[in-house]
Design a protein around this nucleic acid. Structure first.
Length: 645
RNA sequence: GCUGCUGUAGCUCAGUGGUAGAGCACUCCCUUGGUAAGGGAGAGGUCGUGAGUUCAAUCCUCACCAGCAGCACCA
């Protein structure tokens, strides 16, 4: 005789085991109408499942966060049924709920195309209108395998075979159609509602393994109601509007062409942005006690063999040879082995540790063609890379110091918060387990001392050591992993780095590989999308345009520009034979933060009419006053702090 | 790399088995206009590359290159 405790503390007792539906009905018809599923002692279950013991119960309605996942999961079943009704013989595989929606992978000879979407969506709406109940059944394993094999569903049969013996094989029916599924589901297909949309087709490997057959995947988005759906579609438009490839073209920042695939031609404005960021990072590193170095681009393969990269990453390295010499060199794919060479050059003392060695290291990696993406994923890039050579005891304070630097940098660049993930040993790795134990323990301890809260990211560490990943969130809520800090006991060993300790014996230093931005190229892509190209004044590639109204005012416009340029501002003059309206429009579309309009009046009074990007108001300032204000505003945030202090 | 789609003027795109068009941008002329597009004229393309089919290919076929989306990858 189960006693059911509800979230408000009320207890309802029943004579015998009851279903969630019965409990809901006992409480009231209103609840029975809106309850989609339930949570019993923390576990999400079908409303139709029976409760035979005392339990805490919470009903899930459309408003609850859990509902979204269920809508998507149920919609995936509806999609699968629709496809099989339309194209019998198509094999079903899996169809999970994902962020913003769901997908379903099918196996068939011809892939789907977006032209199929209207028919599929119509069939889905038909199935939803039928409102068939989801009914759970538990089948003997052998029957389930036989059933799916008889239907030619070899992927489903394989899934069942691979389920652990202990797991019961549950099948969900919806009308005539059924599928292997762990559940839970809502009451019936009608609960899916109408707020879904098929989005795109794509190939995907069976079980995510590139050796397996390619399936055809249909992506869809699904929401509680049409309003949420519309909001999501709007968000996608927003992301497209911010696409750094589009903005890069519109703002004339960079381009890419076939002769240098995966590498960037930075135009003057883009390079200004790039160098502003480098300058900022260089100052941050100086304040942080780093020493900057520069190491060779082309390095003999012997060094890569010694470091272990030749074995593991050779096919991703650009190899260079020369005709007269029997040597094989590689364009460096990263900087660490070179930094170890500097460390090794001479006898090092414990007194020199920690040694923070930084390089804006230009690296080249032969990334797979399908991975390339604008300036975000490229084959030639520059890292804000540094290696901290230190003792084991210094790992914790150095981690704390690094996190502080990273937090300040992200804030200065306009990102309010970041998360930290702790990635531990991957399956393929260098170094023995005892070393990994120490490295992971040291990093966890460092987090504790630095007061860093982290999420666990199992198996995602670098091949030579565990790492912290720093993930920031942009203006439209997308996450980007940028910063990293990796503990490495392996490379100093392999490349034989050592220092003389207090005891006058040789010791191995630990290396901390760390980056705040990651690669400048990728980070600039993120920054462009974060600001949608509307940068704060200090970052803007063109900070001020002085636009003349009449030709007579052009000499004065030139004078204003020269004045501001002398203070280091990036200023352009627009003295073209165009109306002021056209000039305002063009420079606004080009996302120039400040337009100074000068006509006869301003030239005479030695003033400027200032107009801010996005604003409609103009304010007239004296030339000196405007100059001083803009120069102050264009000061990078770190320099502003210094001048304020 | 894999699957699918795409490649026509600087950009966005239309179009045809008989060697091509629009808008914006560009150049020149008129216009000197006060805060998001003033008017006119002109120039600009071996239709991604190579091969094949055809009397004839930008269009059809194949291969390659590049881009896009997803997957896989990301030291």
């Amino acid at each position: 005789m189960p006693a059911i405790t509800l979230p408000d503390g009320a207890v309802r007792s029943f004579e015998r085991s009851v279903t969630g539906t019965q409990v809901a009905e006992a409480i009231g018809p209103g609840l029975a109408r809106v309850a989609l599923a339930m949570e019993v002692d923390g576990e999400l279950r079908d409303l139709a499942s029976e409760i035979d013991h005392d339990a805490h119960l919470r009903f899930i309605t459309r408003r609850d966060p859990e509902a979204l996942g269920m809508i998507r999961h149920d919609a995936a079943h509806v999609l699968a049924e629709a496809v099989q009704e339309l194209w019998p013989g198509t094999q079903v595989t899996i169809g999970p709920a994902i962020e913003n929606g769901f997908y379903y992978d099918f196996y068939r000879n011809a892939p789907f195309t977006p032209e199929d979407f209207p028919a599929i969506e119509a069939k889905m709406r038909e199935i939803i209108a039928r409102n068939a109940g989801f009914e759970r059944e538990v089948w003997p394993r052998a029957d389930a395998i036989a059933f799916f094999e008889a239907r030619g569903e070899r992927f489903k049969a394989e899934l069942i075979r691979d389920l652990p013996e202990s797991e019961s094989i549950s099948i969900y029916r919806q009308g005539e159609w059924l599928d292997l599924c762990r559940g839970p589901h809502m009451r019936s297909t009608g609960d899916v509602g109408g707020a879904f949309k098929l989005m795109k087709v794509a190939g995907a490997y069976w079980r995510g393994d590139h050796r397996n057959p390619m399936l055809t995947r249909i992506y869809a988005t699904a929401w509680r109601d049409d309003k949420e759906l519309a909001a999501h579609l709007h968000q996608l438009e927003e992301a497209e509007r911010r696409d750094h490839r589009r903005i890069g073209r519109e703002m004339d920042l960079f381009h890419i062409q076939e002769e240098a695939v995966g590498q960037i031609f930075w135009h003057p404005k883009g390079w200004r942005l790039y160098s502003t960021l480098i300058d900022y990072m260089r100052r941050a590193q100086i304040r942080g006690g780093y020493e900057e170095v520069r190491t060779p681009q082309l390095v003999d393969r012997s060094l890569w063999e010694a470091s272990g990269h030749w074995d593991k990453y050779r096919e991703h390295m650009f190899i260079a040879t020369v005709e007269d010499e029997d040597k094989t060199l590689a364009l460096k794919p990263m900087n660490c082995p070179c930094h170890v060479q500097i460390f090794r050059h001479g006898l090092r003392s414990y007194r020199e540790l920690p040694w923070r060695m930084a390089e804006f290291g230009a690296c080249h990696r032969y990334e797979p063609s399908g991975a390339l993406h604008g300036i975000m994923r490229v084959r030639g890039f520059v890292q804000d890379d540094a290696h901290i050579f230190c003792t084991e005891a210094q790992i914790a304070p150095e981690t704390a110091r690094f996190v502080a630097m990273l937090a300040e940098t992200y804030r200065d660049l306009g990102f309010d918060s970041f998360r930290v993930k702790f990635a531990d040993r991957p399956e393929q790795r260098a170094g023995d387990d005892a070393t990994w134990d120490r490295a992971e323990a040291a990093l966890i301890e460092a987090c504790r001392l630095a007061g860093v809260d982290y999420e666990h990211n199992p198996g995602e560490g670098a091949f030579y050591g565990p790492k912290l990943e720093f993930v920031l969130r942009d203006a439209i809520g997308r996450d980007w992993q940028c910063g990293t800090l990796q503990v490495d006991y392996v490379l100093p060993e392999r490349l034989d780095a050592s220092y003389i300790g207090e005891d006058s014996a040789r010791h191995r230093p630990v290396m901390l590989h760390r980056a705040v931005l990651g690669s400048f190229e990728r980070f600039l892509g993120i920054l462009i999308e974060h600001y949608a190209g509307r940068f704060p004044l200090w970052l803007a590639p063109v900070q001020v345009v002085v636009a003349s109204i009449v030709t007579d005012a052009e000499p004065y416009a030139q004078e204003v520009a020269a004045r501001l340029r002398a203070s280091g501002l990036a200023v352009e003059v627009d003295g073209r034979n165009e109306k002021i309206n056209a000039k305002i429009r063009e420079h606004s579309l080009a996302r120039v933060p400040v337009i100074l309009v000068v006509g006869r009046k301003e030239a005479e009074a030695r003033t400027v009419a200032m107009r801010r990007l996005g604003g409609e108001a103009q304010t007239v300032f004296g030339l000196d006053e405007a100059g001083a204000a803009l120069i102050a505003e264009a000061l990078p945030p770190d320099l502003r702090r210094l001048s304020a202090a």
